[in-house]
């Protein structure tokens, strides 16, 4: 426990230092946030434009899609805010920066996470929360709790996939392309009712790359649409826990790969 408190305290100190550094490039920061809003905004703008002409996507109304989109986006933002520096892992390994991380008496993952806060991703969080609140269906307190748990669980699902793939960079693999692709699948396919994609693709997006569990499955629970799912209703109700399990697994993979880290091999 004391170890966790210490890690959190140091995380905060390192993060503050990183922010002080980043604040010296203010213009960059502002444009970064704007780009975040524009990126997520353009994704939803597509839905909005389309639904001017068409009443429903896969039987879901604009409001329901907006809710799904909001859940997905908020989960994504919760993942990317603390984990944004993981994107640079390939570079950290190649430049030998990871050596320094390993020389310090603090969990390496905490140190990497503390290298940078994805302030640019505040735009994602903002856009996600707005959609979520605007499109929130009338829910009881239990459902609200489930919704919160589901968003955190969804963030952990994305974080787990990202961490597991990134840990291959410790073996000096070029993982950037694969990770960008996985990210792309999460953000593009995660915001639609999966039934739209047909059986095979839906199966793959549920059981191979668990995109469905980030938002679609829990949103179906909250919108009372569990009948459409390709997983049994109890599994759907337990979906927030999946994130925890997957992340624990990913962390194990990460630790294993760290043991095999070869540095720059000189």
């Amino acid at each position: 426990m004391a170890e966790v408190v210490r890690a959190l305290r140091l995380y905060w100190r390192l993060q503050r230092a990183a922010m002080r550094g980043a604040l010296q490039y203010r213009l960059n920061l502002v444009i970064g946030i704007a780009a975040g809003v524009a990126y997520q905004g353009s994704g939803f703008a597509f839905v909005w434009v389309v639904m001017h002409t068409f009443p429903a996507v896969g039987g879901w109304s604009l409001r329901e899609i907006a809710f799904l989109y909001g859940m997905r986006l908020t989960a994504h933002a919760l993942y990317v805010l603390p984990f944004s520096s993981l994107i640079g892992l390939d570079w950290l390994v190649r430049e030998g920066e990871l050596d320094r991380v390993l020389l310090r008496p603090l969990n390496p993952l905490v140190q990497i996470m503390a290298k940078r806060l994805g302030v640019g991703q505040l735009g994602d969080l903002l856009a996600g929360l707005v959609l979520l609140v605007v499109a929130l269906p009338p829910l009881g307190p239990a459902s609200i709790l489930f919704c919160l748990a589901a968003v955190v669980g969804g963030a952990l699902v994305e974080a787990a996939v990202s961490l597991a793939l990134a840990s291959l960079a410790l073996r000096t693999w070029n993982t950037l392309g694969v990770r960008a692709f996985a990210d792309d699948l999460f953000s593009k396919f995660g915001s639609y009712p999966m039934s739209v994609f047909g059986g095979a693709a839906q199966w793959a997006l549920t059981f191979v790359l668990p995109v469905a569990f980030v938002a679609y499955v829990p949103a179906s629970v909250l919108l009372d649409r569990t009948g459409e799912l390709n997983v049994p209703a109890p599994v759907a109700y337990g979906s927030p826990l999946l994130g925890v399990a997957l992340f624990a697994l990913a962390y194990r993979i990460w630790s294993r790969q760290l043991r095999h880290y070869q540095s720059t091999g000189t």
Partner: peptide, 23 residues
């Protein structure tokens, strides 16, 4: 060849952070 100091911050800040990291 490689510094462990925080590039954009004053030297004293880096030393403080190292002090924190090593308790």
């Amino acid at each position: 060849q490689r510094s462990q100091l925080w590039w954009d911050l004053p030297l004293i800040d880096s030393l403080r952070l190292v002090g924190d990291l090593y308790d």
